[in-house]
């Protein structure tokens, strides 16, 4: 398990999610694909947090202060905020899908042409 391998998995997951978000007709499928992309980003952030060295820590001997430990988990902090934003996004997105379904009886993105000129 090296940084490169984890980033490989993250990139593949991101590609799968991007394909789903671009190619799917169903709005719920698009939301699910976006969740996969969020997850890929989280995996990358936590992999960087785990494997790379925080700035100012490269000198020897490698004494670690509390500040350095805090800097090392910054990637995990980022993913906490990403998860929160994803939760807000999916709640609002599904509410919008249900509103659209009530009005037009369809959740196909290709049918959502309300703002077409």
């Amino acid at each position: 398990m090296t940084l490169e391998n984890v980033l490989l998995v993250s990139a593949i997951l991101f590609g799968i999610g991007l394909y789903g978000a671009l190619a799917k007709r169903n709005a719920i499928m698009v939301l699910m694909s976006i969740e996969i992309m969020f997850n890929a980003v989280n995996v990358a952030a936590i992999a960087f947090s785990r494997f790379t060295v925080p700035a100012g820590l490269t000198e020897t001997p490698l004494t670690v202060t509390q500040e350095a430990v805090q800097r090392a988990v910054t990637g995990q902090m980022l993913s906490v905020f990403v998860i929160s934003a994803a939760a807000a996004e999916v709640a609002l997105g599904l509410a919008l899908v249900i509103v659209v379904y009530r009005r037009r009886h369809s959740v196909e993105i290709t049918d959502m042409t309300l703002m077409k000129g």
Binding site: K24, N26, M29
Partner: peptide, 12 residues
């Protein structure tokens, strides 16, 4: 809630 099975997971 949005039971839209014919639309399923089709691609555009």
């Amino acid at each position: 809630l949005v039971r839209d099975i014919p639309g399923g997971g089709r691609e555009n």
